[in-house]
Each structure stands twice: as C-alpha cells, then as structure tokens.
Design a binder for these strands. Structure first.
Lengths: 139, 139
DNA sequence: CTGTATCCGAAAAGATACTG
DNA sequence: CAGTATCTTTTCGGATACAG
C-alpha cells in the first residue's frame, strides 16, 4: 500500500501543511469529521464488521453484538442505511424478517476499517502501558 | 496492501464470522471500541493529522484547527499524550513555549488514519447523495 | 420478530473568565 | 503563551413499555 498511500496521502493532507487553518474550508477536516460522526460511535463499525461477509437479520445482529440495546441497533442501522452503507430488505412473511447487507460502498469501507482495527489490536498493549506510566508519574 | 490486508483481515475478524457473540470476549470488539474511545472523537484524528509532518506548539494547533476551544484542545492533547501517541515538551522560556509531536507509535497511526481520511473524502459525495435520496423517500 | 416512543442519567462539548 | 476552573448546553446511550 506504500506508494499509493504516500501519493494519496500528500494529495489529501497537503492543504494542511503549509496552509494554516484552511483544513475545514478545503473539506478534508470536514470530511473526516463527518465520517467520525457517522461511524465513529460505539457500535457502527462493529455492525459493519458483522456484515462484512454475510447479510444478517435484526435479531441475529443483536445476538452477535452483546450489550447493544434494541434501540441503539435500530438507530445505528437506520443511520448506516441512510448513508448508503447498508441495505435493509423486508420480507413480507410471518413472522416478519428483515435482512441487512453491506452495499458496494459499504464494502469499500471494510479495508480501511480493518486497517484501523488491526492497528488497535496491535498497539493495545503499548497504549495500556503508556497509560499506566503516565498515570503513575502524574500521581 | 491487498495480500497482507486480506490475511490479517481474516485473522482479526475470523472470530466474528462463525462464532456468534464472541467478539467482545476475544478482544477485537473491545480493541476497536477502545480505539474509537481514544481517537474516534471530534478532534483527535484532526490533531494527529496536523502533527503528521511537523511538531507544533499549542497556539499553532489552535490556529490550524478552527472551531476547537482552548479547553478541548487541552483535553485532547492530554489524552493523546497519556496514550503515548504524542509528546509534550515544555521549554523554560519567557514567554513559555510548548511543542507537541507524534511519538513513534503515533506515527504508525498515520497510515491507517490517512486511509480512512481518504475514504471519507472520496465517498463524501456519494454519502451526501444517499442521504438526500433517503430523506426524500422517507418524507 | 422487528421495531417505535418516552424518559432518564451520564458524558461530551462549548462559552466564558481567570492564572502562572 | 499555555493553560485551569466553572458553568451550561447538547448529545449519547441505556431501560422500559408498547405496537404492527
């Protein structure tokens, strides 16, 4: 990913380096903030991770994400659907069945999201250690 | 990044696919959530983006991140410092000067964070469009 | 089964004033 | 300059009850 990343990296962040304060106006700051507003919450990325390989129905999602409330699952699914990241398909059966699935755009989010998840897993011990050190000195 | 990513991808998310509900226990869910708790807020990733290429002092950061309050900048810088992602260096001068800089670990976050920023910029129009469509139908 | 509606507490974030 | 302290507003998320 290196070459491509570096090139694009320059493209995206260049406005930030020399041009002080223009980040929000040029869009990058706003774009990042928008993304975080969308999937930077407690559950959204987890839901996307769940739908990574297969479509799932409401109850199945709730079962696989321990701790999420019905309300939150509904809200987050609506939000993701609204942003075009997942689809919601209702089957007119009894009992009712609703399947959620990633859209093409939703699937493009898997790679960067996974990269971030990887980073999180890899560096968790180092961060915990840093935290302990900091709190120890601080106290 | 494809081959490496896919392999690691499988490693990281595998517990989620077959094993329902084990995500929190196995750590991946918790790790992702921890990361989001750390840098998933409104400002942290923006700060890291600012420090990507150079160290900056407090006032310079505030100037380059329009809209952030003094209080929030202080809080987020402390949090990032505590996690070992940035360093804070105080120079005993008058007037006082404090420089913030990414640590080695902080710099490793640049790549995945940039990937996410890229995604955000690239898909912003599509998301806005999806949102408008959704709201139009919904209304 | 798949939601919606309502209420409540905790936490995040903004505004403002003040300090070494 | 680089913060801290305090107050207020806003948002997030959980609990519960109810509905198609």
């Amino acid at each position: 990913m290196s070459i491509e990343s570096i090139a694009l990296d320059a493209t995206v962040f260049e406005p930030l380096t020399g041009n002080e304060g223009a980040c929000l106006e040029t869009g990058i700051g706003q774009a990042v903030r928008d993304l975080l507003d969308r999937v930077g919450d407690k559950w959204s990325l987890l839901i996307i991770g769940m739908l990574r390989t297969t479509q799932l129905r409401f109850s199945e999602l709730q079962r696989r994400i321990p701790g999420i409330s019905q309300r939150m699952l509904t809200l987050k699914l609506r939000s993701l659907e609204r942003d075009g990241l997942i689809t919601r398909t209702v089957y007119a059966e009894v009992p009712p069945r609703v399947e959620y699935e990633l859209t093409a755009m939703g699937r493009t989010l898997i790679e960067p999201a996974t990269a971030l998840a990887l980073w999180a897993v890899e560096h968790q011990p180092a961060i915990s250690h840093a935290r302990e050190e900091f709190d120890r000195k601080d106290k």
